[in-house]
C-alpha cells in the first residue's frame, strides 16, 4: 500500500527538475577537448544520472516504507527534529517563498524602473540611487507585513535582505539595524537590553576587524550611508 505523501512527491519533483535543468544546460558546454575524449560533460552528466537514480530510489522507498526510514541509531543521530506543523504546508512555503523573494526584487527592480524611465544620462546615477532608497523602504514595509504573520520566514529573509543592501547602503550603517532586527526576531523585547547589547556587538566587531585587522568592509555607494561609512572608517583607522 502506498505511503506516499505530497511532500515526498514534491521532494522527488525538486530533484528531478534540477537534474532536467542541469542536463539541458550541459549541451551549452558540450565541447570536445583534444587531450580528453570524454569532454567537459561526462562528469556532470554522470553525477546527474546518479542524482536521478537516487531521487527515484528515494521515491520508491518512501512509497514502500513512508517516513520510517531510519535504519540505525547512527542514522537517527543525523535527524533534525521534525518541522513544526505551523512551519510546513503549502501556505507556509508560499508565504516564505514570497518573503524570500523580496531581497532579489530589490536587487533588480530599481535598475529595471530606472532603465524604463526616460532619464538623462547625467541624472541617471542620482535617479537610480533615489529609486533604490524608495524601493528599499517600500520592500521593507512589505517585509514587515509578511514577516508579521510568518516569523520563521522573516528570520530566513532578513540576512539576505541585509546582504542585498550592503553594496548600496554599506555595512557600517546597516549592521546596527541588522543586530536589532535579529534580536527582535529571536524574541528579545526589552529595549534597555537591546540598547546595551547592540553597541557592544557593533563596537567589538568594528574594533577587532576594522581598527585591528584593517578589514575593508563595504561603505555603500548612496549618501548619506556612504559618508557615514567613511566617517566610521576614518574614526577607527
Amino acid at each position: 500500500m502506498s505511503r506516499l505523501k505530497t511532500s515526498h512527491i514534491v521532494e522527488a519533483a525538486f530533484w528531478l527538475t534540477l537534474v532536467a535543468i542541469f542536463f539541458a544546460y550541459s549541451f551549452e558546454f558540450n565541447k570536445e577537448i583534444e587531450i580528453y575524449k570524454y569532454g567537459a560533460t561526462l562528469w556532470p552528466r554522470t553525477i546527474l544520472f546518479l542524482m536521478a537514480l537516487a531521487a527515484i530510489g528515494q521515491l520508491i522507498d518512501q512509497y514502500k516504507n513512508g517516513d520510517t526510514t531510519s535504519s540505525s541509531k547512527m542514522a537517527a543521530a543525523h535527524e533534525e527534529p521534525e518541522a513544526n506543523p505551523e512551519h510546513s504546508g503549502l501556505a507556509w512555503y508560499t508565504s516564505t517563498a514570497i518573503i524570500l523573494a523580496i531581497p532579489f526584487v530589490y536587487m533588480n527592480l530599481p535598475e529595471y524602473i530606472t532603465g524604463s524611465m526616460n532619464v538623462a544620462e547625467d541624472a541617471r546615477e542620482q535617479t537610480l540611487a533615489n529609486m533604490k532608497l524608495m524601493c528599499a523602504a517600500g520592500l521593507f514595509i512589505l517585509y514587515l507585513i509578511l514577516g508579521w504573520r510568518n516569523h520563521v520566514g522573516a528570520i530566513l529573509a532578513l540576512p539576505i535582505f541585509f546582504a542585498a543592501v550592503l553594496q548600496d547602503m554599506g555595512f557600517y550603517a546597516m549592521a546596527p539595524l541588522f543586530i536589532v532586527g535579529v534580536m527582535i526576531l529571536m524574541g528579545e523585547r526589552r529595549v534597555s537590553r537591546m540598547a546595551l547589547v547592540m553597541p557592544l556587538i557593533y563596537g567589538l566587531l568594528l574594533l577587532f576587524f576594522v581598527a585591528l585587522l584593517y578589514v575593508g568592509l563595504p561603505t555603500g555607494n548612496i549618501n548619506p550611508f556612504y559618508n557615514f561609512g567613511n566617517w566610521i572608517v576614518t574614526l577607527l583607522q
Binding site: K31, A40, Q58
Partner: peptide, 27 residues
Amino acid sequence: KTFWKGWLSIMAGLMIAVIGLDPVGGI
C-alpha cells in the same frame, strides 16, 4: 537520515563543484 538523502547530499555537493571551469580543458 537515509542512504538516499546521504547520496543526494553528496551529489548536490559534487554538482556545486562542477560549476566553474572544467579542470582538463578550462571550459
